[in-house]
Design a binder for these strands. Structure first.
Length: 503
RNA sequence: GGGCCGUUAGCUCAACUGGUAGAGCAACUGACUCUUAAUCAGUAGGUUUGGGGUUCGAGCCCCCGACGGCCCA
């Protein structure tokens, strides 16, 4: 062989996928289709290992098992091979011996690569080192992998690749798989918790003519046939309340909200919210319900109500602390008693902190700016912060004793807002004037102020029963219970800037 | 939006003060019928994130951009 042909051979072999494409050609030449269908596994790795864990070496088990999965490790020993196979439930080991599968088939087995998905039929047996394994009698290549998997020991750790190619992350990182499973269990639990209590699960519009129910910037889109703008919802609140008007006393929705804001470890533009509403209840009732719901959730999901988040312990055992916004501001030394009700004093402090505040901001708004800046992160909790200023709570009912605040609470755990709830404002006259305040704020330049929703007011004018409602951030709950520090760990496909070099 | 850090083989990482870009795993060839990060012998694999600049010489220094991470707003 000349030097030049040697060189050509090597450049072709330089592509790892090219090597595998060649193997496909060779398999096709032997009449083997590398993407065959019809193989139906009958037992998972977990079931297999549980059922046959007691067999002993040299024992012949009169059972044939049919299993499938992805090859994640190959140890070839001349005329035999061990392979580690990963299926949905875990890993198991197979043993391929030339005598058992035949010389021709063994040659084919030697062409298998890490990453390929195969089906096997064989007998359970125990290796000399005591691992329950499958003694393969037949195998089928179900899917040929053209690309190599990440390194077997260190795996895939680059966070950018883990998020962009989540499928790869899920193949190799068990913790990533566990988070997906835990998230699903959490949502199931919450759904059951509410349906068991007579709540009805509903779906309300994701595309709204007027984005309402929260203080946030919406995404705007366009409907061609209607020739008008629509917004992706920032919250389902105003629609769920319409259902209370319609006579459904207990409703909930688990779905995505969209907010056109920055991306961080705490924020994804689309995130999942549980919102539920119950007639004839107050925000006090919801505090008790929330304690019960989340403490039992933790008990169910991780088996305890006391656990570590990062390097600090969280204890969700009820009852939880309750503190008004005003008390929290004073306790955490944002203001003292004499200055907290003085607009000028509060404004000056906010400016000194470098906060983005304006002369048109109400006292309540200034309070909350300072609260977000200095108090929030200190609320390890769990703690209910309640009695929010009326001007930052345009959909919440006024408190009977103090009309400057509302019957509203937010739940804080680990310095993060987990839930927001209130006794709902069902007085259509008060609601109209609150909306009008919001319109004025919007006209003064507040992009996050609410729009006036005339149909929602019309609904209230028909009469909405007294009720309380709550929104619970699912992603943050999942972060808490999986000890994840970034929201991107609990969202399967988090938003990222487009990758270069890919169409 | 601002600051700092990062991007080197498919993956995980090295590379001194600017002086021939390396390793392990994966891959390829060969040996091996009980391995467990198998072992042994050998081989190949690089537009060092992109562009520009300084220099005899740049992965390393300077400028601009892309993407990511952390912190701040």
């Amino acid at each position: 062989m000349s030097d030049s042909s040697q060189h050509t051979k090597h450049s072709q072999a330089s592509s790892l996928t090219e090597v595998r494409r060649k193997k496909i050609e060779e398999l096709l030449d032997q009449g083997i289709f590398p993407y065959s269908t019809g193989f139906k596994p009958e037992i998972t790795s977990q079931e297999f290992l549980r059922e046959f864990r007691h067999i002993v070496e040299n024992e012949t088990v009169d059972r044939v098992v049919k299993m499938s999965g992805r090859i994640i490790a190959i140890r070839l020993l001349g005329k035999a091979a061990f392979m580690r196979i990963r299926d949905v439930a875990g890993d198991f080991q197979i043993y391929l011996g030339r005598d058992a599968v035949g010389a021709e088939n063994f040659k084919i087995a030697k062409k298998l690569d890490i990453g390929d998905i195969i089906g096997v039929v064989g007998k359970p047996f125990k290796t000399r080192t005591g691992e329950t394994s499958v003694l393969v009698e037949q195998f089928t290549l179900l899917t040929k992998a053209l690309r190599p998997l990440p390194e077997k020991w260190h795996g895939l750790s680059d966070v950018e690749t883990r998020y962009r190619q989540r499928y790869l992350d899920l193949i190799v990182n068990q913790t990533s798989r566990d988070i997906v499973i835990t998230r699903s269990k959490i949502i199931s639990f919450l759904r059951n918790f509410l349906t068991e209590r007579g709540f009805l699960e509903v779906e309300t519009p994701m595309m709204q003519a007027l984005p309402g129910g929260a203080t946030a910037k919406p995404f705007e889109t366009y409907h061609n046939a209607l020739d008008r703008s629509l917004y992706l919802r920032i919250a389902p609140e105003l629609y769920l309340k319409r259902l209370l008007v319609g006579g459904f006393d207990k409703v909930f929705e688990i779905n995505r909200n969209f907010r056109n804001e920055g991306i961080s470890t705490q924020h994804n533009p689309e995130f999942t919210m549980l919102e539920f509403y119950e007639a004839y209840k107050t925000y006090d009732d919801l505090m008790s319900l929330t304690e019960q719901m989340l403490s039992s959730l933790a008990q169910e999901i991780i088996g305890t109500q006391r656990f570590m988040y990062g390097d600090k312990e969280v204890d969700l055992t009820p009852p939880w602390t309750r503190m008004t916004v005003r008390e929290a501001l004073i306790t955490h030394r944002a203001f003292n008693e004499s200055e907290i009700d003085d607009w000028n004093a509060v404004f000056i402090k906010a400016v000194e902190m470098g906060l983005k505040v304006g002369k048109e901001d109400s006292l309540g708004k200034l309070w909350m700016s300072v609260f977000d800046e200095v108090v929030e992160e200190k609320l390890w909790g769990p703690v209910f912060i309640h009695k929010y200023p009326v001007d930052v709570s345009p959909l919440a009912r006024r408190n009977d004793e103090d009309p400057t605040v509302t019957d509203r609470f937010e739940l804080y755990i680990c310095g993060r807002e987990m839930a927001n709830a209130f006794t709902e404002l069902n007085d259509p006259i008060d609601q109209r004037s609150r909306f009008e305040q919001q319109v004025m704020a919007r006209n003064a330049g507040d992009e996050e102020a609410h729009y006036l929703d005339e149909d929602f007011l019309r609904a209230l004018e028909y009469g909405m029963p007294p009720a309380a409602g709550e929104g619970l951030g699912i992603d943050r709950i999942v972060m808490l219970l999986t000890n994840s520090q970034s929201i991107r760990e609990v969202i399967l496909f988090p938003h990222m800037r487009p990758e270069k070099g890919l169409g």
